[in-house]
Simulated scan of single mutants.
Amino acid sequence: MPKPYTGPPPILVGYDASDDAVQALEYAARIAAATKTMLQLVFVADDTVVNSPWGVVFDGSGVQAAARKLLAEAALSANALGVAKKRIRTKVAVGSPVGVLTQLSQNCSMVVVGRRAHTAQSRQFSGSTSVGLAGSVRCPLVVVADVPTDREAPVGVALEADGAGVAALDWVLGNPLYAGKPVKVVTVCKAPQSRIFRASVSQEQIDTAIAHTVAQQAAYVAQVAARHPGAPAIATEVRYGSPVDELASFSETVSVLVLETNVRFPTYSIGSVSRGLMTYAGCPVVLVK
């Protein structure tokens, strides 16, 4: 009889065989292999499709059989990336993808999904599943896209001048996954707004706003670093402009971008910056609450 699993909380991967889902699988498998963590691969057959309200008849058993085949192939890929077979679990479920993955996330260390829906053809939108999960999962959410990423680059953390993002930096510095890796914190100074016309904002006002942002960033970084005395030196950068544009540009220089996301109740929606980066970031994005 096999021994029960007693390692770290599992890594949950939502898998549908799309290009982005394949990248999500590979990302999660590398982490699972390095940390000897259970990898749980889940294919959710959307019940609004299987039980079509438009009178189209789908063979539910056929859908699930095809899903099991895809998951078996995914498990082989994970094993080839170093995850032991005994640490790979697969599951086929029928229901709402967001609802099923949210429920399963309660006992997981992270949820990893692809950026886009299976049928998306462009980077104009994030998939509805990843957006829905951002507001509902019970653990960090990693959104991965089919874009080239330098895995040796620093770990990026977005920190706002008002302190939002401190939880993200705390999570990175306390996470064994990133032990010994360089960390770079970026803060975007938003353009000061004139009371009447934005064009009337002076260079002096801009310089003052940037100086204030630099001081605030340094204070928050020092505060978090004091809680992690063994952490490596933290590089910092302050940019000026649109948060989504600047963070998307910054994401192309790091291996992963971690940011704190605030969920709005009762809609469980996330902010425009988090949503924008889920769409346009040039590396995997980790959303920490």
Score class of each variant (00 low, 15 high):
Pro229Asp: 11
Leu173Trp: 09
Ala222Glu: 04
Val258Ser: 13
Ala226Ile: 02
Arg239Tyr: 14
Ser200Glu: 10
Val244Gly: 05
Ala211Gln: 15
Arg195Ala: 14
Arg195Cys: 11
Val201Arg: 09
Ser242Trp: 03
Thr253Ala: 02
Cys189Gln: 10
Pro229Thr: 08
Pro232Arg: 03
Val254Ile: 03
Glu204Ala: 10
Ala168Gln: 12
Val244Cys: 06
Ile196Pro: 06
Asn262Asp: 07
Val186Leu: 08
Val188Trp: 11
Leu177Lys: 15
Gln216Phe: 04
Glu260Ala: 11
Ser249Ala: 12
Val214His: 08
Ala226Phe: 08
Gln216Val: 01
Ala168Ile: 12
Tyr220Arg: 04
Arg227Lys: 01
Phe197Val: 00
Trp171Met: 08
Val256Thr: 03
Ala233Pro: 08
Gln217Ala: 07
Asp170Ile: 09
His228Asp: 05
Ala167His: 15
Leu173Asn: 07
Val185Lys: 00
Val183Lys: 06
Val244Leu: 05
Phe197Leu: 09
Leu173Met: 09
Leu173Val: 07
Gly241Tyr: 12
Leu247Glu: 06
Val256Arg: 14
Ser242Asp: 03
Ile196Gln: 13
Gln223Ser: 04
Ser251Ile: 06
Asp170Cys: 07
Ala219Phe: 10
Lys184Arg: 02
Ser200Lys: 08
Ala199Trp: 13
Glu252Cys: 05
Arg239Cys: 12
Tyr240Asn: 07
Gly241Arg: 10
Asp170Asn: 11
Leu177Thr: 13
His212Ala: 05
Pro266Ser: 12
Ala215Val: 01
Thr187Asp: 01
Ala215Thr: 10
Lys190Met: 04
Ala219Tyr: 13
Thr253Cys: 00
Asn175Cys: 12
Arg227Val: 02
Gly180Asn: 01
Gly230Glu: 09
Phe250Ile: 01
Val188Pro: 10
Pro182Ala: 13
Ile196Trp: 12
Glu237Asp: 07
Val183Gly: 01
Arg195Ser: 15
Tyr240Pro: 04
Gly241His: 07
Glu204His: 14
Ala179Thr: 13
Ile234Asn: 01
Ala167Asn: 07
Thr253Tyr: 00
Ile210Met: 14
Glu204Leu: 11
Arg227Phe: 04
Tyr178Asn: 00
Val185Glu: 03
Gly163Leu: 02
Glu252Ser: 07
Val201Trp: 15
Gly180Pro: 06
Pro182Lys: 03
Ser255Tyr: 13
Asn262Phe: 08
Gln216Met: 10
Ala215Gly: 03
Ile206His: 10
Thr187Phe: 05
Val254Asp: 14
Val183Leu: 02
Ser249Glu: 14
Gly180Met: 02
Ala211Cys: 15
Ser255Gly: 06
Thr236Cys: 05
Arg198Pro: 13
Gln205Thr: 15
Val185Cys: 09
Arg198Phe: 04
